[in-house]
């Protein structure tokens, strides 16, 4: 048997042994990519990052609801806001009346 044939047989034996090891899982366990089954997932780390800020809401005038919201709740909110301003108008009117009819306190002669 020539030496060449001997080397071929050795390579076949070595390759076959390697295949057996791979097939049985030894090589995979030692060098192969880690799978979900054999990795330890670290516990979630609590972070101090606040939750994402809500999208900025449009500024509604004097308690009015969103201009595009015509729901019942929005109508109730709007009428309440209007009533508040109407009360303020009553106060304004009273203040104006008081200003128009104002009289100075008499001073010493």
């Amino acid at each position: 048997m020539s030496s060449v044939i001997k080397w071929i047989l050795v390579l076949i034996v070595v390759a076959g042994g390697g295949w057996l090891l791979w097939y049985s899982g030894w090589i995979t366990a030692l060098t192969g990519p880690k799978t979900a089954s054999n990795t330890v997932t670290p516990p979630p780390v609590a972070t101090t990052t606040p939750p994402a800020a809500p999208a900025p809401q449009p500024v509604n005038m004097n308690g009015m609801s969103d201009a595009k919201d015509a729901s019942d709740a929005a109508l109730v909110q709007d009428t309440a806001a209007i009533d508040t301003q109407l009360q303020g108008l009553t106060t304004d009117s009273a203040s104006l009346d008081a200003a128009i009819t104002d009289k100075p306190l008499p001073q010493a002669n």
């Binding site: 005038m61 004097n62 015509a70 301003q85 203040s95």
Partner: peptide, 27 residues
């Protein structure tokens, strides 16, 4: 004083007109 009070009242009324127009559009 009365001039400024008139302005304040008018300001309130114009504000109310704006608010009521907004409500009117919804209605």
């Amino acid at each position: 004083i009365p001039q400024a009070r008139v302005a304040a009242s008018a300001d309130r009324e114009v504000t109310l007109v704006t608010m009521m127009n907004q409500l009117g559009a919804k209605l």
